[in-house]
Design a binder for these strands. Sequence first.
DNA 1: AATGAATGAGTCTTCATTCAT
DNA 2: TATGAATGAAGACTCATTCAT
Lengths: 207, 207, 207, 207
Amino acid sequence: MSPRRRDAEGTATARAGRRTELLATAAEVFASRGYAATTVREVADAAGILGGSLYYHFDSKESIVDEILSTFLDDLWARYDEVLGAGLGARETMERLVVESFRSIDRHRAAVVIYQNESRHLSEGPRFAYLRESWDRFERMWGELLDRGIKENAFRSDLDVPLVYRFLRDTVWVAASWYRPGGRLTADEVAERYLGMVLEGIRAPKG
Amino acid sequence: MSPRRRDAEGTATARAGRRTELLATAAEVFASRGYAATTVREVADAAGILGGSLYYHFDSKESIVDEILSTFLDDLWARYDEVLGAGLGARETMERLVVESFRSIDRHRAAVVIYQNESRHLSEGPRFAYLRESWDRFERMWGELLDRGIKENAFRSDLDVPLVYRFLRDTVWVAASWYRPGGRLTADEVAERYLGMVLEGIRAPKG
Amino acid sequence: MSPRRRDAEGTATARAGRRTELLATAAEVFASRGYAATTVREVADAAGILGGSLYYHFDSKESIVDEILSTFLDDLWARYDEVLGAGLGARETMERLVVESFRSIDRHRAAVVIYQNESRHLSEGPRFAYLRESWDRFERMWGELLDRGIKENAFRSDLDVPLVYRFLRDTVWVAASWYRPGGRLTADEVAERYLGMVLEGIRAPKG
Amino acid sequence: MSPRRRDAEGTATARAGRRTELLATAAEVFASRGYAATTVREVADAAGILGGSLYYHFDSKESIVDEILSTFLDDLWARYDEVLGAGLGARETMERLVVESFRSIDRHRAAVVIYQNESRHLSEGPRFAYLRESWDRFERMWGELLDRGIKENAFRSDLDVPLVYRFLRDTVWVAASWYRPGGRLTADEVAERYLGMVLEGIRAPKG
DNA sequence: AATGAATGAGTCTTCATTCAT
DNA sequence: TATGAATGAAGACTCATTCAT
């Protein structure tokens, strides 16, 4: 690699790095104060620059959340698609989807919190059509998986699928509101315990 | 009872009725658009009056959410306290708490949504100390209940109590985001299925 | 007329009156400082209210110019249409159009100045399509009138119609930049002298 | 001439050339969007550089218009002064002034548009005193010329001089708003037709 | 009880300008 | 010469709140 090339890459990387940095900062602030209640100035303060300076990097407050959420969802669906394409049985698929979900909470905690709290309101605008689409794919994915699991005798046959889908969906994501990377449990450990609870129930086995 | 008094009471009742009406309207709007993102004017529009007119009934936007949330929590804890005071076993206590929770979603859907979405942010202000208190009572209540249930051999002894507490807590309340009174299932039916899932798990029983 | 009705009308009139007042003030300020260079605050100052208060009456700065210009053009075309519908000869039609133009400068001086200075820029937005339409009608009107006048032998046959059209068009409206209602000459007097100049030329008659 | 000197001159010339280029670009943009409504960034975009880079060449946005307008006016008055110093009769003087005016529109179209649209507002600042002076010289020049023409029996004796002055003044310059160098008519042809109209009028000669 | 008009602080955003590189 | 990142003042607009009627 010539020095020239290294330089050019260095600059491009630096630029992308600054963006990523600002997005991470913004995500943190949006997650903790709420998107609507957060002022652009607060985001800028947290980034150590002035309010107006953010607009050198981003078009608008909205485009900031947009980028935060779409980055998260792109990453998430890439992992999900890998799992779904692996040709596994329903229960193993479900287990791995749950693991990937908790891992994505680990990587994108702030984004997940925003997704959880704001996507319902944001998805009304045309700019956020992808949120609705993601939502729908989610619903289809879990619905089909539960149905398949029942057929494969992996899940109980008396499940109320739409209801279970809702609980699984929400239950995974709300974890973002309390999970702290580097805390007592790793993402994989949380996933394991969560699966234990969901699959086996919490009642003591009859003796 | 003199006619005078009846009049006075009639007026007072009418006034209280109007208040309740306005609170219900406001709760609905706050729930669907988010508290911070909702303008006083939107609430007033939904109530068919002008923005300024709301201030005849309430001191401020904040005092409106305040009243919505405290009404809901007062009612909720009254029911919880009844259950807790009944001297039941851990599992039955848990079952009845879940049932009361879903019933309260049925009665206060909008308030629960607001509680779910905004209480973290709101509870920072001094006016909303009761939200933090309620949160703490919640945590203690479930923690003690789970511990007791394990001792009583009602729940599996290998539960990760803090984790299970979090899942139970969130899992119940997020139901407010999709539950519609008068829908396919009554609150009690949802509670029953939910309990089935949580207690027994979703995995098909072996052999 | 009952007192009730008088009251209602009084209120409606007062409301419309306030709007008209604010529009007149805004037009004056836009005309003297230029639309883009005028701040909403300057308009509000001139009206004796605060900047934000203007938004009780109008949606945006743009909607203010919009209303100023469309009011002026509606009035202008109503008068033009009367003249055009009167079945007069080309020269008399032209004379009366010029008179009506100067009269409209008298009634809508500020609006005409704005129209003159800003319509080119404004008409690019979709909201101001009517400016382009008015412009086109103008062009057609004068083109046809000049052609007809030449056929009727009212105007010289060697006129370069597109060129003359342009001069007539601009020449009339720029008068708004110096005409002051209540000055040395009335609108009708200016029109008369203007017509003398345009029709007969300024060169001394030979012989 | 040493190579060194040639180089230095070459560089100086190149620099001056870049300046001129940028000024032409800026003039075009100011003319089409309006000075106040044009951002420095738009000018830079049109020149293919970044916003901040303009400040290597110019002190401020204001100094750019300043240079555009003063260049134009210097050139214009140099030509006018030649005509005025030639000792011609009033009518020939007037004809040649008009010709020079249209020629200057040909050479400085964008500058003339800016002059026409913005000089009233700009001339309020101290930096643009020369605009007011030019305006005054203009007025005196035309006033004296018309008076002299009447005395010399070149123009009709019943002219309303202040009025005719205004029409001549504006009428010539507004041509900049539609004239396109290289169009159907050359500047001299437009001048000729314009003079025909102004001198002889547009009415068909009697009998 | 409610209206209509206004307030004034604050929000998002723009933009001329600066400056290290 | 030009770039990229930032500044900071100002601009349009919003909105909770007030108050005379």
